[in-house]
Each structure stands twice: as structure tokens, then as C-alpha cells.
């Protein structure tokens, strides 16, 4: 038990040093632009199908599930704005980030873990190529930028799914539905939700890289790194979300 507590503190300390090194390396020249763009493509573009499907289902299911309750209170006309607010403020950022934690953090953890145990990272190091700058900085920056974009996209697809869900038992035109959505949206609904997605993206990339970089031993450690990256990144998303909601409540309510 004591060992587990000690290891947790040890891990937290190492992660802090890893984070500090990211901020040290990110401002150093040269910037690995090609690798960064490649990672944006892998992380962003290749996640689109998954985000499209989940985003659409989120909006559709939320609308269909909420309709009976809203009808009871005669507030069916509020359904588009309620669904869009729920999606934009909470559901789309958290669910999309969790999907990214599952897909991206595990992928980065496994890729870097595999490179670590097969000495590819050491090979980069002895070739005088800074592996931290090439592998970590590019991936963390890519997740930090691509996750918010994916969340915006999920918001839109989710609202579109909501429109289709609304029309299962209703008959609204796309114009009136979207007018209803936009009329009830405020800048402060979007801003805090957007800010937190940058943090989600940053931690997804950072934790994936940290777990992969610290894989040790044989091939079993690659699986462990991937698994541990998903668990830790998912947990961090909930913690960041909780903090973000508290801060938003404090300053914007």
C-alpha cells in the first residue's frame, strides 16, 4: 500500500518534469513543422469518422430521450436550444475528448512505447536528434489544436443529429430549427467550453507521450503504456471538466 502511494507521488513528480520539459522544448528552434502537420492529419483528419458517428448519435439520442420530459412541461419548443446548449457546454467536449483519449492517447502511448522498448528513441538520441522535440512536442501541440477543432465539429454534427431526432415526431424546417438554436446561444456558452477543450487536448497528448516514453521492459509494457494512457487521460478529462465548471460558475454566472 505504502509502495503504491510512493509510486503515485513518484509518477506525479516525473509527469511534472515531463511537462516542464515540454514548455522548455516548445520554444526552441528548429520547429518540426512536417512532423507536426503529419500528426495533425493523423490525430485530426483520421478521427473524423469516429467523431462524426458519435457526435450524430449524441444529438439524436439526447433529443429523442429529452422530448417526453419536455413535452410534459409543454416546453417542446425549447428542445433545440436545450439540446444545443447541452451539447456545446458539456456533452460534446467531454464525449469527444473521451473518444480522443481512447483513440489518440492509446495510439501515442503504444507507438512511443514500442519505439522505446525497441531502442528507436535511443537511436534518435544517439543520432543527435532530440526525440523529445521530434516526438513529444509535435504530438502534444497537434492534440492541443486538433481536439478543440474536433469538438467544434462534433457540436455541429450533434446539432444536426438533434434536428433529425426532433423531426422523428415533429416537423420543423432546418432553417427554423437552427434559428432557434442560434437565438438561444450566447458567447459565454461557447467560450468556457472551448477553453477547456484546449486543456483536454493538451493532457491527452501529454499523457499519451509520457506513458509511451516511460515504457520499460518487453512488449508487455507497450500494452500497459497504451492502457494506462487511456485510463489516466480519461480521468484527467473529468478532473479538468470539474475544475472548468467550477471556474466558469465562479466568474461567468
Amino acid at each position: 500500500m505504502l509502495d503504491k502511494i510512493k509510486n503515485s507521488f513518484d509518477d506525479a513528480g516525473k509527469l511534472s518534469l515531463f511537462t516542464a520539459r515540454f514548455f522548455k522544448e516548445v520554444f526552441k528552434w528548429p520547429f518540426q513543422l512536417n512532423e507536426f502537420l503529419r500528426q495533425c492529419y493523423v490525430i485530426g483528419y483520421k478521427s473524423l469518422p469516429l467523431v462524426t458517428i458519435t457526435g450524430f448519435i449524441m444529438g439524436l439520442v439526447l433529443t429523442i430521450q429529452s422530448r417526453p420530459t419536455m413535452s410534459k412541461f409543454g416546453a417542446e419548443s425549447w428542445l433545440p436550444s436545450m439540446v444545443s446548449l447541452s451539447l456545446i457546454r458539456e456533452i460534446a467536449p467531454v464525449i469527444t475528448a473521451l473518444i480522443c483519449a481512447g483513440k489518440i492517447a492509446s495510439g501515442i502511448g503504444a507507438e512511443l512505447g514500442s519505439m522505446k522498448v525497441t531502442s528507436q528513441i535511443d537511436a534518435m538520441e544517439v543520432s543527435a536528434i532530440n526525440p523529445y522535440k521530434y516526438l513529444v512536442v509535435t504530438r502534444v501541440l497537434a492534440t492541443t489544436i486538433m481536439v478543440p477543432i474536433l469538438v467544434f465539429y462534433a457540436d455541429f454534427i450533434g446539432i444536426l443529429g438533434g434536428y433529425i431526432g426532433y423531426n422523428v415526431h415533429g416537423n420543423a424546417s432546418m432553417y427554423s430549427y437552427f434559428t432557434n438554436v442560434i437565438e438561444h446561444l450566447e458567447f459565454l456558452d461557447i467560450l468556457p467550453a472551448t477553453i477547456k477543450t484546449f486543456f483536454f487536448g493538451f493532457f491527452i497528448g501529454l499523457i499519451g507521450c509520457y506513458k509511451g516514453f516511460n515504457a520499460s521492459g518487453g512488449t508487455a509494457s507497450v500494452g500497459h503504456a497504451a492502457n494506462s494512457a487511456v485510463v489516466t487521460a480519461s480521468l484527467s478529462i473529468f478532473i479538468i471538466d470539474m475544475l472548468a465548471v467550477q471556474i466558469t460558475d465562479l466568474f461567468f454566472s
Partner: peptide, 13 residues
């Protein structure tokens, strides 16, 4: 100025 050959080759796979 130094080359290093790893046991498993360590090629970027």
C-alpha cells in the same frame, strides 16, 4: 561524430 549500432538494429519501423 559517433555511430551506434543497437543490438536489434533499432530501425524506425
Amino acid at each position: 561524430r559517433i555511430g551506434f549500432l543497437f543490438q536489434g538494429g533499432a530501425l524506425y519501423d
